[in-house]
């Protein structure tokens, strides 16, 4: 597909996600709904990966860059955290490490458990 059309297709799904999200009772962001939408469209083969390949590649490669303005905006919020910036930094760093560790070992543990149960039922 032409690149402009690819852009339009991905933007359309993203926009539809936002539209649906405004009607939902719980705060699920439009981007997550759009992700589910695109996944469904791929599964039922209405959209094929080749159709939107270049656009997807562009978004994937540049994704970190899209976070720059949000990061720069922290500068504007500085007044809110001035008094406790060091504590907040420590909380962010420690809890991120804790969350990573707990999640990684939980998933690993459940996978091992699942495999054991599978093997047990095969016997």
């Amino acid at each position: 597909m032409k690149i402009a059309l690819q852009v339009a297709v991905v933007f359309l799904i993203s926009w539809l996600g936002d539209v649906i999200s405004t009607f939902l009772p719980i705060p699920i962001p439009g981007s997550v709904i759009g992700m589910i939408l695109l996944f469904i469209l791929l599964m039922i083969k209405i959209i094929k990966v080749e159709h939107i390949k270049e656009k997807i590649e562009f978004l994937k490669v540049h994704m970190p860059m899209f976070f720059i303005p949000a990061g720069v905006e922290i500068m504007e919020k500085y007044d809110f955290v001035k008094g406790s910036i060091v504590q907040l930094l420590i909380v962010c760093v420690l809890s991120t490490i804790i969350t990573f560790a707990v999640t990684v070992y939980t998933v690993k543990g459940v996978i091992i458990l699942q495999n054991k149960i599978k093997k047990g039922s095969e016997k």
């Binding site: 992700m35 939107i52 978004l59 994937k60 899209f66």
Partner: peptide
């Protein structure tokens, strides 16, 4: 002033998140 352009860059975040569906699909 910066964010007049910055918000256009931020706008790509949602489509980029949507695009992650392709990785999940594969």
């Amino acid at each position: 002033s910066f964010n007049k352009g910055g918000s256009i860059i931020s706008m790509f975040l949602a489509p980029a998140t949507v695009a992650l569906a392709v990785s999940i699909y594969t």
